[in-house]
């Protein structure tokens, strides 16, 4: 089983800038992994509306955000009044994984949900 650091996944539903296969594969693995997670439709949209839901997310210890470029994610949170501590990003306390650049395998591996990293298989039905 993967470690239990909180995961926030962004679907980037409003644009086609994140490769579809990457975001689908990561989401499927996440869903199948048995790991708890938060997932949102679009961080940009939440930021634009200054969604107060971003504040508790930004304060989660050890948060791993699966979205796009770290610089963009950092300032999207900031623009919403929910800044992520820059030092926490620097020292890895908060990790931002980039689905625009990295492969789904690389991201799943970093999340600890790649094949062989989780005990719960994708076919875990009605266990």
């Amino acid at each position: 089983m993967s470690d239990q650091r909180p995961i926030l996944y962004c679907r980037c539903a409003y644009a086609k800038v994140v490769p579809e296969d990457v975001k689908d594969q990561v989401l499927d693995r996440l869903v199948d992994s048995g790991h708890p997670f938060e997932s949102v439709s679009d961080l940009c949209e939440m930021s634009a509306r200054k969604d107060p839901g971003l504040l508790p997310l930004s304060k989660q210890k050890g948060l791993r955000i699966v979205a796009c470029y770290p610089r963009a994610v950092k300032w999207l949170f900031s623009a919403a009044g929910a800044p992520i501590d820059g030092a926490s990003i620097q020292d890895g306390e908060i990790e931002i994984l980039n689905m625009r650049v990295d492969s789904s395998e690389a991201i799943c591996s970093k999340l600890g949900i790649a094949d062989g990293q989780t005990q719960q298989a994708s076919t875990a039905e009605g266990t």
């Binding site: 679907r11 539903a13 689908d24 989401l27 499927d28 869903v31 199948d32 048995g34 790991h35 708890p36 997670f37 938060e38 997932s39 949102v40 439709s41 679009d42 839901g53 719960q120 994708s122 076919t123 875990a124 039905e125 009605g126 266990t127």
Partner: peptide, 25 residues
């Protein structure tokens, strides 16, 4: 656990429709 064959498309579709989806264990 929710059936994997239902869970996968359900989460994808909900996110694409603008919902926030959380899984707790």
């Amino acid at each position: 656990q929710i059936d994997a064959q239902l869970r996968r498309p359900l989460v994808r579709t909900l996110l694409d429709r603008g919902y926030t989806v959380t899984r707790i264990t």
